[in-house]
Amino acid sequence: MHEMGIALEVIRIAGESIPAEHAGARIERINLKVGKLAAVVADSLLFCFQVASKDTPAEGAELVIEQIPVKLYCRDCGRQWTVEEPVFVCNGCGSAQVEMISGRELDIDTIELVDEDSDDNQPG
């Protein structure tokens, strides 16, 4: 429901991450990591991104969402495992001392800029 806010933040952070020496460059791709437990609907985010990126360096960029599984770690027996269902009890020893090591990400990993100076873009 707050995907528009997230899209705007993604666009802002991506824009600010363009190094000064490439000022004015267009963003070709934004690689996002989104945990399965993050309160984000990928389709809504993609739609909002498309709308909100107009007239920004991210206009026309591809938003690539990598979904990160929910991984748990048991502090008692050291077991690590991936869960599909929301059960946060160790499936080995039954301990409740379980830590979430991934699954809540909402991170911009990398951005890719169109390289205007690249030889590939030169005619001939």
Binding site: I6, E9, V10, I13, A14, S17, I18, P19, H22, A25, E28, R29, L32, L106, D107, I108, D109, T110, I111, E112, L113, V114, D115, S118, D120, N121
Partner: peptide
């Protein structure tokens, strides 16, 4: 944190930032 890798026709910039950082 900015690590830049250059591939054919594009530059990849390492960002690694939480979207909800602000």
């Amino acid at each position: 944190d900015l690590i830049e890798t250059k591939t054919r026709g594009s530059r990849r910039i390492k960002v690694v930032k939480r979207v909800l950082d602000a």
